[in-house]
């Protein structure tokens, strides 16, 4: 589904954010990306979304080589990806409902069908009662969950989440991860960037660790369990 083939990313001002990244994420797989602040987690997700371009190497998403993705194709590429942004990227000139409806509106869904899906998505993140509010009046954790609802509302085949549980208490974090697991079970591929070590440890999925732009560890799912068993 997603394949990094020797991908490097150097920002214009010289910072090498990612160096020679190699890994593959298959359909229906969930993986965490972890690493210190500035390790390159967000950059990696931005490459997949075509928000940034790789400086070298091949990045293939859903069979499409992003190096050959023209500007006009980028929106359609993004429509198959649901993304949760570290900085939420919500619009404060409209309600929670309209924020979540945005991807459906863009894809041209009928208002009735869109409404049904938006409510289903808001229900999943426990915000159905706040659909009429302006996201500016919500708490940080609630805003984050609005972003999650928006990411899943279009039933994407890939979900990218950048610190989706950063502002959530352990209980809500578990709930949000539960939503992600539901999508995983129907074949959606998910990449979740997080430095919440306890959350990662508790769920025991594949974990990619970045350090100064290098992929230093690719720990397979179930590894933590066996490690614990070994001690």
């Amino acid at each position: 589904m997603i394949k990094f083939d020797n991908v490097s990313k150097r920002y214009i001002d010289g910072e090498e954010a990612l160096a020679n990244i190699n890994f593959e994420l298959s359909k229906g797989e969930l993986a965490f990306i972890t690493g210190h602040s500035g390790a390159g987690k967000s950059t990696l997700l931005k490459l997949i979304l075509a928000m940034e371009r790789a400086s070298s190497g091949q990045l293939i998403v859903n069979g499409m080589n992003l190096n050959r993705l023209g500007r006009r194709r980028i929106p359609f590429h993004r429509r198959q990806i649901g993304a949760v942004f570290q900085d939420h990227q919500l619009l404060f000139d409209r309600s929670v409902f309209d924020n979540v409806a945005l991807p459906l509106q863009i894809a041209g869904y009928h208002a009735h069908e869109a409404g049904r899906r938006v409510r289903a998505a808001l229900d999943k993140v426990g915000l159905l009662c706040k659909e009429r509010l302006n996201p500016a009046h919500l708490s940080g954790g609630e805003q984050q969950r609005v972003g999650i609802a928006r990411a899943v509302v279009n039933r994407p085949s890939i979900i990218l989440a950048d610190e989706p549980t950063g502002n959530l208490d352990p209980e809500l974090s578990a709930e949000v991860m539960g939503v992600f697991e539901q999508f995983k079970s129907v074949g959606v591929s998910l990449l979740v960037a997080s430095h919440d070590a306890s959350l990662i440890a508790s769920l025991n999925y594949r974990t990619l660790t970045l350090d100064h732009g290098r992929l230093v560890e690719d720990r397979a799912a179930g590894y933590a369990g066996s490690e614990n068993a070994g001690r």
Binding site: L49, M51, R71, R72, P75, F76, R78, R79, A83, F85, Q89, L90, L91, D93, L102, P103, I106, A107, R150, N154
Partner: peptide, 16 residues
């Protein structure tokens, strides 16, 4: 600008 940025991120075309 902010709104346009978000629309782009969720797949809005330039025409849209």
């Amino acid at each position: 600008r902010q709104e346009i940025q978000v629309i782009k991120l969720v797949g809005g075309t330039d025409a849209y």
